[in-house]
Each structure stands twice: as C-alpha cells, then as structure tokens.
C-alpha cells in the first residue's frame, strides 16, 4: 500500500519539480543589472550568515523566550531570502511564500508567548531558565531522577 503510493507519488512530484524549474527559466525574461546581481549574491550570503547567528541563539539561548525570538527572526530571514530569490529569478512564483512564512512565524511567536505567560513559575513546565546548576540538571537530564 505504502510502496504503491510511493511509486505513483514520487514520479509525479519529480515531474512537477521539472515543470516548475522550466517555468522559472522560461519566464525569467526580466534582465538583471550586474550591480543588482552582485547585491543579490551579497544579500544571499549575508542572510545565510544571519540565519547561522539566529541558529546559534536558538541552540544556546538560556531561556525559552530567547529561543522563541531566535525562531521568529529565523522565519523573517526565510522571508528575506524568498524576496531576494524573487529579485534574482525575476519571477513572482515564490512571492506568495513570503507572506505565508511571515504569518506562520508571527502566529507561532504569539502562541509561544502565550505558553510562556500561562506557565510562568510552574514547576511542571520548566522554561529552560538556568539560574542554578541544580535546575539545569533537572531540566536536561530526567534520567538521573529528581534532585533532592
């Protein structure tokens, strides 16, 4: 059953990808000035570097609010990369994705903020705030059992 589904689905998806790629390359009729092309490359590199910085904060961030704001900024970086790709390809196909990713990032931020607000100070919902080492051990390693 699953194998049948895969055998029908995968070629369909591959064909759709080919069609989309040809659509983009055929429609990319808008010429790009060399200065703008250079700026687009620089922007892609800079946005990727910014995503790495956000990811570092997402992994490191001592509190849950740090991680949520890093994820929000990461989503906005994705929107920025989609816009730069729109300029680079000269095609509108990906522009809808910008608004969609932006809305999803905003909604997830609001949801996490409500979660932090509702569970503040509750021992059964630790937020990863790490003021003392005992709390860190309890949060990160439940296998050791609850501390005395």
């Amino acid at each position: 059953m699953t194998a049948d589904l895969l055998h029908t689905l995968v070629p369909t998806l591959l064909a759709a990808g080919d069609a989309a790629a040809h659509h983009v390359s055929d429609d990319a009729a808008v010429s790009v000035a060399p200065a703008l092309l250079f700026a687009a490359y620089v922007a892609l590199g800079g946005l990727s570097l910014g995503m790495v910085l956000c990811l570092w904060r997402l992994v490191r961030g001592p509190s849950l609010a740090d991680r949520v704001l890093a994820a929000d900024l990461l989503a906005l970086h994705v929107v920025g990369i989609v816009i730069v790709l729109t300029i680079y390809l000269g095609d509108m196909v990906f522009f809808e994705a910008a608004l969609a990713v932006g809305i999803m990032g905003f909604v997830s931020t609001v949801g996490f903020a409500q979660y932090i607000h509702a569970t503040a100070g509750r021992a059964d919902h630790p937020h990863g705030d790490a003021p003392d080492p005992a709390n860190v051990r309890r949060v990160t390693d439940p296998a050791q059992g609850a501390p005395a």
Binding site: S63, L64, A65, A113, Q114, I116, H117, A120, G121, H127, D129, P131
Partner: peptide
C-alpha cells in the same frame, strides 16, 4: 511573557 516568567 518573559517578565511574567521572571527571566533574569
């Protein structure tokens, strides 16, 4: 939310 959770 961070203020409510007393984030340092």
């Amino acid at each position: 939310a961070a203020l409510k959770a007393k984030t340092p």
